[in-house]
Design a protein around this nucleic acid. Structure first.
Lengths: 156, 156
DNA sequence: CTTGTGTGGTTGCATCATAAAACCAAATGG
DNA sequence: CCATTTGGTTTTATGATGCAACCACACAAG
């Protein structure tokens, strides 16, 4: 198999995520979708990508349950691509990517937009990792444990 | 230019991040590096990837300032690849990817590990987006603003 | 009903990136 | 000093990407 290696069977959740949205375009398509883009041509205009790979990506995202096709919304006979809950769940990933660029990009002056909260218009806080009890965690404060085998009818 | 389109000049910070680490392997290499992997062969063993593309990815990550080569650490004459602060700054991205998989994966039972805090051994909390004043934000609570032109000697 | 136009794709190449395996040189190890 | 490990590069085959051309359908005008 000389195919581009698939991570779908990998046990690491990061690899599994990358299998669904680790290519060059998927996250940008999702970004547009989060901003309300729904139509094929609209994606194509905003992203400036080739139509064939847009079609391929949309199909892949639909297959992965990130987008779904809806019959219409403005009455036209065409279909739309809308995010599923799983798709909307990628939002923190996009925010993390954005914040990483904002913090570490070599040419931050080229960054055109900042993410603010709608109510106050102020930048959102950096994502932070917290323990279950709320303590702020650094990478070094964390470790990996094997996933516990899920008991049927476990406590609670 | 038929080359794989580069997002380096794009004004969107998400695209800029993807330009550095949006390929199939970079984030997995960084994941290993965050767990202390430093040597070429060690990356190659853990990730099971072809050596040529590992070499290419390592070079790219060094070029992007995510890894840097250090002369040694155990006295041997070989070199090591260690994360820069910029590289360690990708941690929230990896956590977001991991949590997305944990929450939405179709076969969560195949996920082998969970991320816990070292002290209590309990899973880390989901990343949450908060406003500057601490209010919890949903995607719909946010919007994009054009980046303010940075004044030299601006107020504070 | 025929022609035109926009939307939403698919199909053909040309080129690039990726993957596997072979090869290779320097550093260690005995 | 000879063998093996480490850390790669080269070679070659194949898949993915990008662009342009083509095409089918919906819808509207004449």
């Amino acid at each position: 198999m000389v195919k581009r290696t698939s991570f779908a069977g990998d046990a690491c959740p990061i690899a599994r995520s990358l299998d669904a949205l680790g290519d060059w375009w998927s996250l940008l398509i999702i970004r547009e979708a989060l901003f309300g883009v729904r139509r094929f041509g609209e994606f194509q205009n905003k992203l400036g990508m080739a139509k064939n790979i847009l079609a391929a990506r949309l199909r892949s995202l639909v297959d992965h349950g990130i987008l779904e096709t809806a019959p219409a919304s403005d009455g036209s006979a065409y279909q739309e691509y809308v995010l599923t809950p799983k798709g909307r769940g990628t939002f923190p990933i996009l925010v993390a990517l954005r914040q990483w660029s904002e913090e570490f990009d070599d040419r931050p002056e080229e960054i055109a937009t900042i993410l603010v909260d709608r109510e106050k218009g102020r930048p959102v806080k950096k994502l932070e990792m917290r323990a279950a009890d709320g303590r702020l965690l650094s990478p070094a404060d964390t470790t990996l444990k094997p996933r516990p085998t899920p008991r049927r009818r476990s406590a609670r």
